[in-house]
Computed example of a mutant assay.
Amino acid sequence: MKFTPLFCFLSLLVLFNAKPLQGAEPEAVLDKQGKRLKPGKGYYVWQFWADNIGGLTLGTTRNKTCPLDVIRNPKAIGSPVYFSAPGLTYIPTQTDLTIEIPIVGSPCKESKVWKLSKEGSGFWFVSTGGVAGDLISKFKIEKLEGDIDVPIYIFKFCPSVPGVLCAPVGTFTDTDGTKVLAVGDDLEPYYVRFQRVSAFPQEI
């Protein structure tokens, strides 16, 4: 898969403010208790086979500079993640979302909204510093299909605009062992479930 031409086309679409495609109303994303994810509520994001560990948070990678990247901490509960979908009172699948991890006390002043950040040929980190509504800050949650007892999801960078890059978010292991969310080739798949923060005690 060659990403470079698609990324250039994606940049052009940002300039021309392309409008998203319209589709049927999608189903709601469900947390581990079977309840709909809600805008403005915090959720831990865990790999589907693990509880209480491996959560998402923010950290410095690459040159250890700002903005922060979205990483998995295999030994911790992670930080609350917030989702928003304009005009909706729940978080749906297959819909453009703004995703944010608003950690407190960060040395980086950029927004904590996710965005796609180019790292090299055919490879992009999921970073922060995004702006709600911008094309490079539009992510989706997709439900895995099949004979599965519980709902399992993946993140995708797949803006609802014709011809733009559409690919799942996986995990890239950095040179120091940090697991960074990324879009590109040869990444570890990242299948997740969601846990409402208020239903689970936060670590101090």
Rank of each mutant, 00 (worst) to 15 (best):
F7V: 09
F9T: 14
S11C: 14
L12R: 10
L15N: 05
A18L: 15
P26I: 05
E27Y: 07
A28P: 01
L30G: 02
D31C: 00
K32G: 00
G34Q: 11
K41P: 00
G42E: 09
Y44H: 02
V45C: 07
V45K: 03
W49K: 07
A50K: 10
D51Q: 14
D51A: 13
G54W: 07
G55Y: 11
L56D: 07
G59Y: 07
R62C: 05
T65H: 15
C66I: 05
L68N: 06
I71W: 03
K75M: 06
D96H: 06
E100M: 08
E100P: 01
P102I: 00
P102K: 04
K109W: 01
V113N: 13
W114S: 08
K115S: 02
E119F: 09
S121C: 10
T128R: 13
G130H: 14
A132Y: 02
G133S: 08
I141W: 10
L144I: 01
I152E: 02
Y153R: 00
I154F: 04
F155C: 02
K156A: 10
P162D: 03
V164P: 02
L165R: 06
L165H: 03
P168Y: 12
G170F: 02
A182Q: 05
D186P: 01
V192Q: 04
R193T: 12
F194N: 14
S198L: 12
Q202A: 03
